[in-house]
Design a protein around this nucleic acid. Structure first.
Length: 264
DNA sequence: AATATTGTTCAGCA
DNA sequence: GTGCTGAACAATAT
């Protein structure tokens, strides 16, 4: 699940639960998720500090402590956060556990261990090192920038949307959703798209991601004409009465409507 | 019991 | 060197 909208919700969650509270101590329960920092060092550096601010870039979450140190979290395919007091509310696959001095805990849970826990002095350096592209909600993202980023690309539009080095934050689910609303087949080669197609896709990137955030990424809250709650093969298209199809595109399952997303 | 699954990384190829 | 694809990674559900 954790694509841009999910991580944005985690940011809001952490902002409303975990800021300005002293960290009594922290436990690394799965050292294989650590990046540069060692388990011991991370625990020492979290102890007696507090979080002051939370930012997001693409699918990465950055939590600022004092002295220019930021905790980096990436959620892989199954990561999420849980703030709780009583043990019985603890989730089942905690990989990092932060204990606050008010008796509450913040758990980073990641069943499939494909996430990342790290520290950095500056999110910008980390973003550059990872070669992450622009965030679709960043100040410099606009239609001409989008057009420029896709110019000269080979390959399918879905792959380009999912390419974190072009734009950061869109994954398999939301690339499908964006193309579904733009009415464009996910396998369409970028170089065959018309200007009007780029305009539509650009518009839908903001609309779809913002809608998902407004729905708090809960499938029950999505508008009726969204693919996400019915993203299954053979399902009826929620827009046109067509049928949802599945096709593998750059190694991932793409779902789309065979009627209103015609192959180019 | 194979197969599929939201993620990134990296080898191999054009 | 660059950009793209597909496999590998982990753990679980179907």
């Amino acid at each position: 699940m954790p694509e841009l909208p999910d991580v944005e919700i985690y940011k809001i969650y952490m902002n409303s639960t975990s800021l300005h509270q002293k960290i009594e101590n922290a436990e690394v329960l799965e050292p294989s998720l650590l990046g540069q920092v060692s388990s011991r060092s991370l625990q020492m550096r979290l102890k007696n500090r507090e979080f002051e601010e939370v930012r997001r870039h693409g699918k990465y979450l950055f939590s600022k402590m004092d002295k220019n140190e930021w905790l980096i979290l990436h959620f892989g395919m199954t990561g999420f956060l849980k703030y709780y007091k009583n043990e019985e509310q603890a989730p089942g696959h905690i990989r990092l556990l932060i204990h606050f001095d008010n008796g509450y805990h913040l758990a980073y849970d990641c069943q499939r261990k494909l996430g990342l826990i790290d520290l950095t002095a500056n999110p910008k350096d980390f973003i550059e090192k990872k070669k992450l592209g622009i965030d679709p909600f960043g100040p410099d993202f606009n239609q001409s920038k989008f057009r420029e980023l896709l110019n000269g690309r080979r390959g399918a539009i879905k792959s380009a949307l999912m390419n974190q080095q072009i734009m950061a934050g869109i994954g398999n689910i939301y690339s499908d959703e964006i193309l579904f609303h733009a009415g464009i087949h996910p396998a369409s080669p970028v170089k065959k798209l018309k200007e009007a197609d780029f305009e539509k896709i650009y518009r839908e990137i903001s609309t779809v991601l913002q809608t998902a955030i407004d729905c708090r990424v809960n499938p029950d809250n999505f508008p009726n004409d969204y693919l996400l709650p019915n993203r299954r093969e053979k399902e009826d298209c929620p827009q046109c009465g067509g049928t949802i199809q599945k096709e593998t595109i750059s190694g991932r399952s793409a779902y789309f409507c065979s009627r209103h997303q015609k192959k180019i």
